[in-house]
Design a protein around this nucleic acid. Structure first.
Lengths: 356, 356
DNA sequence: TAGGGCGGTGGAAACGTTCCCAAAGGCCGG
DNA sequence: CCGGCCTTTGGGAACGTTTCCACCGCCCTA
């Protein structure tokens, strides 16, 4: 490996001079600058990031913890994160928890050991994990993504999950449904699932309807087990006319399972999701859902993290806007009326706001 | 930050002793071991990876370059990669080219500057990019993933794209289709797209059919442009009865576009993809495709990379097995016969093999 | 012309770790 | 009982970089 030492020798100057030239220090002659750069080119020298990091205590990298890479909503946000990081000259170190609450902690420890300058994280549960606390104790800047922070002192970028699901539930009710079920990933693996369920309950009660118990299904299991679990539920005589799912991937799997069971969506069962993944627009029937701007949330989280690193900003929760995306998976209830749909007040648009 | 120095002071011994205990050197007393570990716990000491890396010239990280995180097939392989890396105690640094041939090079440079010990890469084009050459020149272990290497001295994990597409084309022909089109991502952005097209041509000619010109569509563009481009093609009177797509995501988008245009799949148009992404089984109609074991390919590539790092193995191309996954998107041609399907010889199973 | 200031440069310490080498202590065998 | 060997420990150099400090000319001004 060619080092700064070699360059100095070749250029006939001191190591410190080379370093100055390389870092664009003003105290340097054009002549030496040219000589040094020539030596750099001839030797094919490239600065060693490790040596630099050791001295400067900066690694130029931050960590990202997400539950899963294969869920398109996290893939999208990761895409936004990667882009924003690259633009700023930062590298990202990606790690996953696979929805396992225990792995949140070790994953963050591993990131810390690597010397990341900050961490972006979507934890399984901010209430029980206390991962953010450990980061705070170590003074490592961090931003929660998708999670709703327990402690307002923790920075976060999310949508108003509760309100959004309430809005979505309102859309379903407006289409004449009264028997509306809720299917969810395991509550212990996702605070979003819990919060969204609460939003569903809010709106149901508001409409004078009885919220149903959430059906928790294992999110990462085998397909066969999944279909079996769903079948037990959908074949029951008490099957609802509409089903809210805690996320789009789940909704799409449910639709596929329903088809397997001989149910037609939306004629026999309306389905709605949450996330707004692209694929939801391409499936048949297209999936009604709440759209959250995943890639943009990732980008925003990165900007937020940088601000925190520079000490420019106090931690705050950034609530991103959500929108209802209609889809053919959600139809009027049998016997429901267009008039009923028109009577229902449309959900007011939520604008981005910062809660200090 | 607490350093090894602090621990040594606390434990009342030398820095080197602490280092030995931490690294599990045999030359160490149980008593000192206990004393050191106690000091470590009390001080909450964690080894500084930067300092270690500087000394050992090992970073414990390798780089991953993929075209896009949001394509599920790359997300899946990335999932496999992440898992395998984590198991081995390695971190991964992820970067994307967004199918831009120019960005392959800079991305790899960035990874190298960070001091990765190896690189896993899916480049846009191994023929023109010569990225692998640069890695070889710098003696950085690297494995191509999904790409078919030009130079057999370059390690790679892939499927037999040409043969696989030929197999798939055979399945379509066996269902009585003779007018079979091919839609593809831009050839310049993907060697897979080109090679797969060649496989399609092979099998068409073999069956005495005329291969059609590939329709290249911009893969990352706006949805509106995409639909417009596809519409021009699908509304033409020369529309084929079956369409092969260079990947699943494209196939799913095509199916959605076809629906928008009032075409029924598979009644008016059969569609087949390539990749075997999960979502393809959940869309309606389910997508006929070639399944490549994405996550497993990622894991294998990691193992391969480790072997290369240890100098254990000569570079070679690992061809993973592919399988045809039937789907309702592919039906018998109007006027096609079951007998015709039966007459067609089934594609022989491909087993994994290593080309030395 | 002499002195002061300043721009450019070189030397060296420091970052946190690993690991080689030497020294010290204990134990065993002669 | 003493010498030698082996085990354990300490000291210090090295990894590649940044950056502080000191030094040396040069130029400008008095």
């Amino acid at each position: 490996m060619t080092t700064i030492q070699d360059v100095a020798m070749r250029a006939g100057c001191a190591i410190s001079t080379v370093s100055r030239v390389l870092n664009g220090s003003p105290h340097t002659t054009e002549a030496t600058r040219v000589r040094v750069m020539a030596a750099v080119d001839e030797l094919g020298y490239r600065v060693n990031t490790i040596g630099r990091s050791l001295k400067t205590q900066k690694t130029g990298a931050f960590g990202v913890l997400i539950p899963s890479i294969t869920n398109p909503v996290f893939a999208s946000s990761l895409g936004g994160i990667e882009e924003a990081a690259r633009t700023a000259g930062y590298d990202i170190i990606v790690t996953t928890s696979n929805y396992d609450p225990g792995r949140d902690g070790e994953a963050v420890e591993a990131l810390l050991a690597r010397g990341v300058e900050g961490v972006l994280l979507t934890v399984t549960d901010p209430a029980t994990g206390r991962v953010a606390d450990r980061l705070a104790a170590r003074h490592v800047p961090h931003v929660l993504l998708y999670n709703q922070p327990i402690d307002p002192a923790v920075a976060a970028v999310t949508v108003d999950n509760r309100r959004a699901t309430a809005d979505l539930t309102g859309e379903v009710i407006a289409r004449g449904h009264t028997d509306i079920g809720y299917v969810s990933g395991v509550f212990g693996s996702s605070d979003r699932a819990r919060i969204r369920y609460a939003g569903y309950c809010d709106r149901m009660r508001e409409a004078g309807l009885k919220p149903q118990a959430a059906v928790e299904v294992p999110f990462v299991g085998q397909d066969r087990d999944f279909v079996a679990a769903v079948a037990r539920f959908l074949n029951a005589p008490t099957r609802p006319t509409a089903l809210l799912c805690s996320n789009d991937l789940l909704a799409i799997r449910i639709m596929a399972a329903a088809r397997t069971l001989g149910l037609r969506v939306p004629e026999d069962l309306s389905v709605a999701g949450f996330d707004g993944i692209d694929i939801g627009r391409m499936v048949e029937p297209s999936l009604a859902t709440i759209l959250q701007p995943a890639a943009d949330m990732g980008r925003q989280a990165v900007q937020f993290l940088f601000a925190l690193m520079r000490g420019e900003r106090e931690p705050a929760t950034l609530i991103m806007p959500h929108t209802f995306r209609p889809g053919r998976s959600l139809a009027a209830a049998r016997g429901g009326t267009i008039a009923g749909a028109l009577r229902a007040a449309p959900a007011p648009a939520l604008n981005r706001k910062t809660i200090p």
